[in-house]
Computed example of a mutant assay.
Amino acid sequence: MSSRGVAAEFIGTLGLVTVVVGSGIAASRLSPADAGLQLLENALATTAGLFVLIVVFQPISGAHFNPVVSVVDAALGYRRWRDVLAYVPAQIAGAVGGAILANAMFGLDAVSVSSNERLTWSHALSEVVATAGLVVVVFVLARTGRARYAAPAVAAYIGAAYWFTSSTSFANPAVTAGRVFSDTFAGIAPGSAVMYVAAQLSGGALGWALVLLLAPIQRRDGVRIG
């Protein structure tokens, strides 16, 4: 386990939640009467920010920024479980720090627990679908020797999933936890967050099974290696 990797996961997840929450706050101020435009602005900023963060941190830590991705990474044999035990707390701490930073940059209370209730079964189903899809994108690329496409593919997928899921595709337990601490457009109430995390873990398990179904043999640049 590399301390640089843990630091990269903390900083990268902090940056991701700063982008998500900060752009959500900016969107609600720039387009207060148009929820669709707010979502578009939030989605575009998140897509761009996620692309940059993956490009920067992928060589250092793998650019997971997501406990589900870290767990599946270990389950597929790419990483040791002790690395996951170090990555996950760093991701959660980074996510909370990102929400606090975004709040502060926009002159809000640094810590404010969200009152944005998202507790519906359609949202839970959306999180299962969004998280499973994310896992498939990341690991089918990895297992078919195309991990170099992860940054554009993951960013594009999350940007699209903002719109094709009713939950706006959190797809990440750490990001969900961080967004609890911002009572803004991008926030989520604690009770809803618990349901989201449960759905995301279920989606991660489904995604892992789909990866094994779709890409059972590891390949690198088209050559079988497993």
Results as ranks from 00 to 15, higher is better:
residue 82 R to F: 12
residue 47 T to Y: 11
residue 38 Q to C: 05
residue 108 L to E: 14
residue 71 V to N: 07
residue 72 V to N: 01
residue 89 P to E: 14
residue 106 F to Q: 07
residue 108 L to W: 13
residue 108 L to D: 12
residue 92 I to R: 01
residue 96 V to K: 01
residue 46 T to P: 04
residue 80 R to Y: 11
residue 67 P to S: 07
residue 39 L to P: 01
residue 47 T to L: 15
residue 44 L to R: 11
residue 37 L to N: 09
residue 94 G to C: 10
residue 63 A to L: 01
residue 105 M to K: 08
residue 80 R to T: 13
residue 103 N to I: 08
residue 38 Q to M: 03
residue 94 G to E: 10
residue 92 I to A: 08
residue 110 A to E: 12
residue 77 G to W: 03
residue 55 V to P: 05
residue 90 A to G: 14
residue 44 L to D: 05
residue 85 L to N: 07
residue 80 R to P: 11
residue 55 V to W: 14
residue 86 A to H: 14
residue 104 A to F: 13
residue 94 G to P: 08
residue 55 V to D: 06
residue 103 N to Q: 14
residue 57 F to Q: 01
residue 40 L to S: 02
residue 58 Q to F: 12
residue 99 A to I: 03
residue 37 L to C: 00
residue 91 Q to A: 13
residue 68 V to K: 00
residue 57 F to I: 02
residue 91 Q to Y: 13
residue 66 N to G: 04
residue 55 V to Y: 14
residue 106 F to M: 05
residue 95 A to E: 00
residue 65 F to D: 00
residue 62 G to K: 01
residue 103 N to H: 13
residue 76 L to R: 02
residue 58 Q to E: 12
residue 74 A to L: 06
residue 83 D to N: 14
residue 40 L to I: 06
residue 59 P to N: 09
residue 74 A to G: 06
residue 64 H to R: 07
residue 92 I to S: 03
residue 106 F to C: 05
residue 45 A to T: 08
residue 66 N to Y: 01
residue 37 L to E: 08
residue 106 F to P: 01
residue 69 V to I: 13
residue 48 A to C: 14
residue 94 G to F: 00
residue 39 L to W: 10
residue 87 Y to T: 03
residue 110 A to F: 12
residue 94 G to N: 13
residue 71 V to W: 09
residue 56 V to F: 13
residue 72 V to I: 14
residue 44 L to P: 07
residue 70 S to H: 09
residue 48 A to G: 15
residue 81 W to G: 05
residue 40 L to F: 14
residue 97 G to R: 11
residue 63 A to G: 03
residue 44 L to W: 11
residue 42 N to G: 03
residue 110 A to N: 11
residue 102 A to Y: 07
residue 59 P to A: 05
residue 40 L to M: 09
residue 46 T to W: 09
residue 41 E to S: 10
residue 65 F to W: 02
residue 75 A to V: 08
residue 89 P to H: 13
residue 74 A to M: 06
residue 82 R to K: 14
residue 45 A to C: 14
residue 101 L to A: 15
residue 77 G to S: 07
residue 92 I to G: 01
residue 40 L to D: 00
residue 90 A to H: 06
residue 92 I to T: 08
residue 74 A to W: 15
residue 38 Q to E: 06
residue 84 V to P: 06
residue 86 A to T: 13
residue 65 F to N: 00
residue 77 G to L: 03
residue 110 A to P: 12
residue 67 P to V: 04
residue 109 D to V: 09
residue 42 N to S: 15
